[in-house]
Amino acid sequence: MNIVSMQETTISPELAKKFSRNLIERLIEFGLLCSAAFAVLITTAIVYVLVSEAIPFFQHVSLYDFFTDTVWTPNYSIKHYGILALVSGTLTTTFIALFVAIPLGTITAIYLSEFASHKVRETIKPVLELLIGVPTVVFGYFALMMVTPLLQKIYPDLTTFNMLGPGIVMGIMIVPYIASVAEDSMRAVPMAMREGAYAMGATRFQTAIRVITPAAISGIVAAYILAISRAVGETMIVAIAAGQQPNFTFNPVESAATITSYIVSVALGDLEHGGIGYQSIFAAGLTLLLMTLSFNIVGHMARKKFAERY
């Protein structure tokens, strides 16, 4: 072992830590921490309210009934609280929306990132962003007044309220979200990767599909997760155009209520404050949160699995 004796030293004022510099650093750090904590705090508060209001509900309705009963009739004389009747509506409309939005959004992203000229891209992007800004209530009436009547021309038995029309419109609404997030991640793929593919004699399409898409996959998956959350949480479109009748069905041509459209109908004042019906919206809200959360977790795992370094 090597023992070195320590030498006596002093701290010269020049090298000493400066109080003012330290203080400013600390303040900045604290400010940043506060902003980050704020988001966490709000989320926690929301979960707290949902859970605390849902607890009395579950003292009346067993978890088993809640998750297995397929009838949801809180304002009938024979009350049922089977969340599946709402979950089915949420899942069906979400699925239709994704069926529309994922292909369209991905293709749009690929086009904008790999094919469009600078000028075309700069024209299309603002239009897409405009679409993001359209209030959902407008989309709702668009589904009810335009899309459903149009679909009725093809399929005359379609009822005025159905899940297909609003599902499709919801999909259209989500396209720009997917396109924009996926395009950002594709554009972030280094040019060197593209040059490598072109240098091998690849066409634009081959480069886009076989190199850029896999390289950007984690961002693309993130875009899909965002889309799912957006679809699951969408309220106005389905409340307006899908009917608000809870209905345990996965048939897109039937009318149904989703978790969100149920919550909004209660919020609009059908049920009295404080009663079990009122509490049921918190149980429904909690279910919605759990659904979104689990989609996010699955998506996060998928992203990790696909994550590519370059």
């Binding site: 280094p190 060197a192 040059e195 240098a199 091998m200 081959q206 896999p214």
Partner: peptide, 25 residues
């Protein structure tokens, strides 16, 4: 064909990287 300054393999397996040009053809 061309080899670049910084290695730029594709986000694929070793096998698929080499197969790329053949698949393109």
């Amino acid at each position: 064909s061309m080899v670049f300054q910084k290695p730029n393999p594709f986000p694929k397996s070793i096998y698929e990287n080499v197969a790329y040009g053949l698949r393109v053809r």
